[in-house]
Design a protein around this nucleic acid. Structure first.
Length: 365
RNA sequence: GUGGCCAUAGUGUAAUGGUUAACACAGGAGUUUGUGGUACUCCUAAUGAGGGUUCAAUUCCCUCUGGCCACC
């Protein structure tokens, strides 16, 4: 059993056990796509934020530095000098979001590299092999993330392919990890697809649960559909997932999305919003968790009104940035294009998200 | 003092004897959901003053004002 829930708590406050340590739920995973948090945030900066876990991308690391180099380097933890657990995305989403030219067949997916255009083939087995080389602690199966909108027919065929790939991932994973003691093995998660069709979500979840994964992700959401639709599909999916396994809503989201999803029984999240928005000048501040919703402010730091504002970004925040620097300084750094801006803003926005999830973990009735 | 050049959004530059005078930055309002990019979208805002030529002037001519350069 890798997941324990506190039965008396509200939400799903529990503990997920990985080979590199336990993680309290619900939690948010900062994204280190290429083995670094974008915005000049070092592994030590990140660990100082107590993130519990980070996420990296198989697709990007497969292109650079590549499978063989990663094997020789002894994995990503060593490469980036990071000691907390790492979850790796399988590359399925990047094929969907980055590659204009792609061909999906039963065997796998062929696509052109966004870096130099060279043809890359990614199969379920190859994705797992790369994730094992990375030394990932939570490995995701290769899936096809359907776009929104998506026809029923395409969504059904796609989900069934995703299930067959999941089975192959599981078999390959079992073969490659059977020599490891159970406590030294990474976890393997399946991914529910089915677009916005409730019966397809049920079908996908049921098929994956039959295969018995360590946790279940819900993919193919937050791809352009309205929030109400996302929650509707989430509510239609969760009942088909086991209570004693972690649920991961991939790529979500804004604080209000995460709050709504946690209330509906989701345990894990990842999203580019805190880091990307930080780089683009949008700062999260003044969080309030109320009974039915979350409230917060978004500061567009470039604005004139911050020119001489000596307050920290968020007066209640304890992050490095807020302890030492003012809104005026951040605005100035943003405007003069200093790299320090990105680091300080990213550290703060991550701190905001991590503190938000920490409060959800501690929320009592 | 004489001659020449210049004057267009807040700033720096375009363009034109004839529909809504363009662009960049600045200013304002937004966007970003399993990360190709310090990204993207929308909005506000201008022909120095006065006179003349002309059907029509920001454009051509004159005067003034202000600035730059050269010469004495």
């Amino acid at each position: 059993m890798s997941f324990k829930l506190d039965q008396k708590s509200i939400f799903r406050q529990g503990v997920l056990l990985t080979r590199r340590g336990h993680i309290r739920t619900p939690f948010f995973m900062p994204i280190a796509t290429k083995g670094a948090i974008k915005g000049a945030v070092s592994s030590q900066d990140l660990e100082a934020l107590d993130p519990q876990i980070a996420l990296a991308n198989t697709y990007h690391l497969l292109l650079q530095p590549g499978l063989e180099a990663m094997k020789k380097l002894g994995g990503l933890h060593k490469l980036m000098n990071f000691s907390l657990p790492i979850l790796t995305d399988s590359g399925g989403y990047q094929v969907f979001s980055l590659s204009k030219i792609r061909k999906i067949t039963e065997k796998g997916v062929t696509f052109s590299s966004h870096i130099d255009g060279q043809e890359i083939f990614l199969s379920p087995e190859k994705s797992i092999e790369m994730q094992l080389a990375i030394g990932s602690d939570i490995i995701m199966v290769l899936d096809e993330c359907t776009p929104y909108p998506c026809s029923y027919k395409y969504a059904k065929e796609s989900l069934e392919l995703t299930t067959r790939w999941a089975k192959r991932c599981k078999e390959y994973f079992a073969k490659k990890t059977k020599h490891l003691p159970k406590k030294k093995r990474p976890l393997l998660f399946g991914i529910v697809q089915g677009s916005v069709y409730k019966d397809l979500r049920e079908q996908s979840a049921t098929e994956l649960v039959d295969l018995d994964f360590d946790g279940y992700a819900i993919g193919g959401l937050a791809v352009g559909e309205p929030q109400a639709k996302m929650l509707e599909i989430l509510e239609a999916t969760i009942p088909f997932l086991p209570k004693d396994k972690p649920r991961y809503l991939m790529g979500v989201g804004k604080p209000e999305d995460i709050f709504a999803a946690v209330k509906r029984g989701v345990d894990m999240f990842d999203c580019v919003i805190p880091t990307r928005n930080a780089r683009h000048g949008s700062i999260f501040a003044n969080l309030q968790i109320l009974m039915t919703k979350v409230k917060y402010d978004t500061l567009l730091i470039k604005k004139d009104k911050f020119k001489t504002d000596q307050k920290p970004l968020d007066p209640k925040c304890t992050c490095l940035t807020c302890q030492h620097y003012s809104r005026a300084y951040l605005r100035h750094l943003y405007r003069v294009n200093e790299m320090l801006y990105a680091r300080l803003a990213t550290v703060h926005n991550l701190s905001f998200y991590l503190e938000f999830l920490k409060q959800l973990r501690e929320e009592k009735e």
